[in-house]
Write a protein that binds this DNA or RNA. Structure first.
Lengths: 144, 144
DNA sequence: GTATACTCCGGTTCTCCACTGGGGTTTGCA
DNA sequence: TGCAAACCCCAGTGGAGAACCGGAGTATAC
């Protein structure tokens, strides 16, 4: 019921990439990692997953790096979390007994999942960037 | 993001206890376990947690067993899951870096949690029992 | 006073998370 | 052409928690 640091790291990385999307300039793992202090070798794996999930593109070689695969307002938080957590293949039949009670519980749990996913689906990376900017404005106001 | 079998077992057990609440007759671990085929030694531990959480009462000795601590409509699914999963003490400061981005993400995640908890809070054990009864009615209809 | 239940404590196996390391391969640039 | 900077792939490790199992103790009804 809590956010894994896997997902949190991925979101932080994509948040770093978002402002660089218009320019088309890639960002390197090292830069992202030091900016958000994430272990860089770990972030590498997460970015590889995101690449395989079609959320980022990579550029190899010197002056390479990562950049978003599409506009920041076309990537929802659900896209990110489901890609990184990999909870799409809900089809393993290694489930518990199929009693009437179990079925009822599964139904309610489906509602819980839907509620959670609904929230994740309504936010995009762009929204997060704007939220952060707004927050920083508030911080500045208080600072003055 | 999925229901642990811990919570599922606990809900199944409480669902078994619910119809026995009015009579005041306790149910034994063995009976609950065989009814829902849950490993009985494991269920024992879960029931102990529920007892410490004040959701069930235990009666020791011969003809002992467990019974609900209060009416089935006064126990929400949130009560059960939070008791068994123990996610109340959200105060350990072993968190990730406190960047503006991290704060924004935490905020959104708070919304996700609230959405999920909202669903769990609106259902009681009584609701589940009624859902199951309704489901069984439907099954019978189809059977005829 | 004995069988029947719960109670407490510990250990075990397994899986996953978070992370580290050691090789590769591709690319820009001098 | 060489080489360094980046990504790429695979493998392993340490700790934590989930899901159990087992045994010794304790309270209670009959």
């Amino acid at each position: 019921m809590d956010l894994s640091s896997k997902s949190e790291y991925a979101l932080l990385a994509l948040l770093e990439l978002s402002p660089h999307y218009p320019s088309g300039e890639p960002l390197q793992i090292r830069q992202i990692a030091s900016q958000q202090n994430i272990p860089d070798r770990y972030l590498e794996q997460l970015l590889a997953t995101l690449r395989r999930g079609g959320l980022v593109k990579s550029q190899r070689g010197a002056r390479g790096g990562y950049l978003l695969a599409r506009d920041p307002w076309k990537i929802t938080l659900y896209d990110v979390v489901s890609c990184i957590e990999g909870f799409e293949p809900r089809a393993d039949p290694a489930q518990v007994a199929d009693t009437p009670e179990a079925r009822v519980i599964q139904g309610v749990w489906g509602e819980v999942r839907q509620a959670a996913e609904g929230v994740l689906q309504k936010y995009t990376l762009q929204d997060l960037v704007e939220k952060r900017n707004a927050q920083q404005q508030v911080d500045i106001m208080y600072y003055i």
